[in-house]
Simulated assay, not measured.
Amino acid sequence: MTMLSRVAERLYWMARYLERAEDMARLTNAYTHMAMDIPKGAEPGWDVLVRIMDAEAAYTDHYRVYNEQNVLKFIIADEDNVGGIYNAIRAVRENVRTTRDVLPEEAWEYVNELYIYAQEHADKSIGRRNRYKFLETVITSCQMISGMLSSTLSRDHAYRFIKLGRLLERADMTTRIIDVGAAALLGEDRHHTTVDPLIWASLLKSLSAMGAYRRMIGPQVEANDVVDFVLRNETLPRSVKFCLNGMREELIPLTNHKPVVKLLDRARRKQSGFDPYNSTREQLHTFVDEFQASLFNINRTIDSTWFQQDQT
């Protein structure tokens, strides 16, 4: 290794939290628009957003009811929600602050501006009046920071750990969204199946994949086509396959990469072998659960391989 393991760890988590903030903002924005478009009584509940985060226990510690106001406060502004937007931005700032010597000078400036903006506006953006502007600002700022890092960093170990963190977080979020979409939103006991295409379209929009889907698949939004597209498409930047392939590319130049690559290749085989066209929603749910466990093991092995070396 040519860099301290604690620096590599902070860069990795900086990228994860930056991706988390952007993804949660995208998801919240798309879900809000869907809730306004679907006829009253046919829309899924706001608890879906909490379930995607796998944060039911943390939510019920502070809130009793799953309504729009409570859920959006939990996601946007709650300082105790480790998966929320404000907390993710705060974590990005702290990790950048402690790694400024290996990042472009602009990184701290842009991240600090985003943090100050979130600090001032998160609480005011829970209601619908200010929510769209806040979420769009977060998305745009995260994209700007990610783009700046991608276009200015040398392709060294710092860049590799940033990209690993970003792609692992992105794969995790994509599978969470698909799992809830298939196993919860579109259960067989639902009575308003005519709105299902709107729900799947919303999930595609939360991944910024609607345009690509229409160009490559067609205008008709079908559940199995959507699942196959975001799991197995090789060219979509937010597909699971794209993320796993990109992670492998960055792992190979690193010393002691074999244990992580072995787990990653196992996850790639699992992802490639899953056929959404011949699977039930229960089988999809089981696949996602197992895949999430694979991502957890990959993250744990990355930690033990590279981030614990110089810790006493």
Score class of each variant (00 low, 15 high):
Ala42Cys: 03
Met53Thr: 15
Met14His: 03
Thr140Tyr: 08
Arg64Glu: 14
Glu234Cys: 01
Glu56Gly: 00
Glu94Gln: 09
Val230Lys: 01
Asp303Phe: 07
Asp228Pro: 04
Val195Met: 04
Ala118Tyr: 13
Leu203Trp: 10
Thr305Tyr: 08
Ser151Gln: 13
Gln143Leu: 07
Gly45Asp: 10
Glu188Pro: 02
His285Ser: 12
Arg215Gly: 03
Phe287Ser: 01
Gly218Cys: 03
Ser304Cys: 01
Arg64Pro: 00
Pro44Thr: 12
Lys241Ile: 13
Asn256Tyr: 08
Thr137Pro: 02
His33Trp: 09
Glu113Tyr: 11
Phe74Arg: 09
Leu236Arg: 03
Asp303Glu: 12
Asp101Leu: 08
Gln271Met: 11
Glu249Tyr: 10
Arg300Cys: 00
Glu249Val: 11
Glu120Asn: 15
Asn29Asp: 13
Tyr86Leu: 12
Val180Ser: 08
Asn278His: 15
Val195Pro: 06
Arg176Tyr: 04
Ser125Ala: 14
Met34Asp: 05
Arg214Lys: 15
Ser151Pro: 04
Asp265Gln: 06
Thr60Asp: 08
Leu251Tyr: 11
Ala42Glu: 09
Leu244Tyr: 12
Ile178Glu: 07
Glu79Ser: 13
Asn87Cys: 12
Arg269Glu: 09
Thr280Ser: 15
Glu105Met: 09
Gln69Cys: 03
Phe296His: 12
Gly83Trp: 10
Ala183Gln: 07
Asp80Ala: 13
Leu149Lys: 04
Arg214Pro: 02
Leu263Val: 10
Ile76Gln: 06
Trp13His: 03
Thr98Cys: 00
Ile38Arg: 05
Val288Met: 03
Thr152Gly: 01
Met247Tyr: 07
Arg93Met: 02
Ser150Val: 08
Glu234Asp: 15
Tyr86Ala: 04
Leu114Asp: 13
Leu185Thr: 11
Leu18Tyr: 06
Thr60Ile: 11
Leu11Gln: 02
Thr32Leu: 00
Thr255Pro: 00
Asp37Trp: 00
Phe229Ile: 08
Ile85Glu: 08
Gly187Asp: 13
Ile85Phe: 04
Trp46Asn: 03
Ala8Cys: 02
Leu168Met: 11
Thr60Val: 12
Arg100Ile: 14
Asp78Met: 07
Leu153Met: 14
Ile145Trp: 08
Gln309Ala: 06
His33Tyr: 12
Ile302Val: 14
Thr174Arg: 05
Ala107Leu: 03
Lys73Leu: 06
Val96His: 05
Thr255Glu: 10
Ala58Tyr: 09
Met173Leu: 01
Lys133Pro: 00
Leu114Pro: 12
Ile89Leu: 07
Asp78Asn: 14
Arg51Gln: 14
Ile177Cys: 00
Thr194Phe: 08
Ala223Thr: 15
Ile302Glu: 02
Glu22Gly: 08
Ala57Ser: 10
Arg232Pro: 08
Ala25Leu: 04
Phe242Arg: 07
Arg176Lys: 12
Thr175Cys: 04
Ser279Val: 13
Thr32Gln: 05
Glu169Ser: 07
Glu113His: 15
Cys243His: 09
Ser202Ile: 12
Arg10Ser: 08
Pro197Arg: 03
Ser208Thr: 15
Phe287Cys: 02
Pro104Leu: 04
Cys243Arg: 06
Leu264Trp: 07
Leu18Phe: 05
Ser141Gly: 05
Tyr117Ser: 02
Asn297Gly: 01
Ala212Phe: 06
Asp225Met: 02
Met53Gln: 14
Gln283Trp: 11
Val65Thr: 15
Leu164Glu: 05
Tyr59Ala: 02
Glu105Lys: 13
Lys270Trp: 03
Leu244Trp: 03
Ser146Gln: 13
Arg16Ser: 05
His285Gly: 00
Pro259Met: 01
